[in-house]
């Protein structure tokens, strides 16, 4: 069920401002790809174009092609709502719905997308998603409690459970651990390893060790210069990026000789 993602000549704009220029990459199904790079280089922006979350900001537009198993997600007849059902997302800060219980948070996608679903079916999905997010054992006795009452790490795993409950093909993670403590971060990283059996995962991270730990491939983004748009410098096997990158800029960044 995981799908391949191809980006061809992506140019991403905020209004007239070109934020990211000329991005090409291919992401294989059932793999973990890390986006790294300095702040402001556009890696989160690229991530958000993959599920068309970019365009919820007024004036934001995209040129070029983004293909999901060959199908252009920016095609004229494509509903962005459907794109987002297919490509799930986990955000930087855990954001469970504050009015909902743990159970309802996980079920939210299903309940809000399509109206009717049997309670027993929903129970199955909720348990499966929470198990997949390594959260079931911690919350199974308090599913009716508010999701906002969990710890930060638990909330983030709840958000992951919420995202995978709708059975996406791809899971995008925008610095999912940056607001978490080391132990919670470890839990999320373990979770990513198990999730890649089923999903294509793209993760934006500031933490290079994390990129090295969890990903098979790494993409390095950088600004072309002051006031210039961000660009994809190179994308390759993680091992190669961290040991023997092709580009000098990558090596400088990896080795800390940057900026």
């Amino acid at each position: 069920m995981a799908k391949r993602i191809d980006a061809r000549n992506l140019n991403i704009y905020y209004g007239k401002f070109l934020a990211v220029a000329d991005v090409d990459f291919t992401i294989a199904p059932r793999s973990v790809t890390a986006f790294i790079g300095p702040s402001g280089c556009g890696k989160s922006t690229v991530l958000r174009t993959i599920n068309r979350m970019h365009e919820v900001i007024a004036g934001a537009t995209v040129q070029g092609e983004l293909l999901l198993d060959g199908e252009d997600i920016y095609g004229a007849d494509v509903d962005p709502v459907n794109v987002r059902r297919t490509i799930g997302m986990v955000f930087q800060r855990p954001n469970p719905f504050p009015t909902m219980s743990i159970y309802d948070n996980v079920a939210a996608g299903l309940k809000l997308q399509s109206s009717r679903m049997k309670r027993s079916d929903l129970d199955v999905v909720v348990e499966k998603s929470l198990r997949a997010a390594n959260l079931w054992d911690e919350v199974k006795d308090r599913l009716a409690k508010p999701g906002a009452g969990l710890s930060g790490g638990q909330q983030q795993r709840l958000c992951i459970a919420r995202a995978i409950a709708v059975e996406p093909q791809v899971l995008l993670m925008d610095e999912p651990c940056s607001a978490l403590d080391p132990i919670s971060t470890l839990a999320i990283e373990d979770l990513i390893q198990s999730l890649k059996q089923k999903y294509t995962i793209v993760i934006v991270t500031h933490n290079m060790q994390q990129a090295a730990r969890v990903s098979e491939r790494t993409a390095f983004f950088n600004l072309a210069g002051v006031g210039k748009p961000g660009q994809l410098v190179e994308i390759d096997e993680t091992q190669k990026i961290f040991s023997n990158p092709t580009e000098k800029a990558t090596e400088d960044y990896i080795s800390g000789r940057f900026g």
């Binding site: 979350m53 794109v83 987002r84 955000f91 719905f97 996608g109």
Partner: peptide, 29 residues
């Protein structure tokens, strides 16, 4: 109501009107 909640809802494939009615309004109720 934090925009993060709207985005979380959009990212689940929930249409805008349902995001407003089921997420934004209850949060601000």
């Amino acid at each position: 109501v934090p925009n993060e909640l709207r985005e979380a809802s959009y990212a689940l494939g929930v249409p805008k009107w349902k995001t407003i009615v089921k997420i934004v309004l209850p949060t601000a109720m």
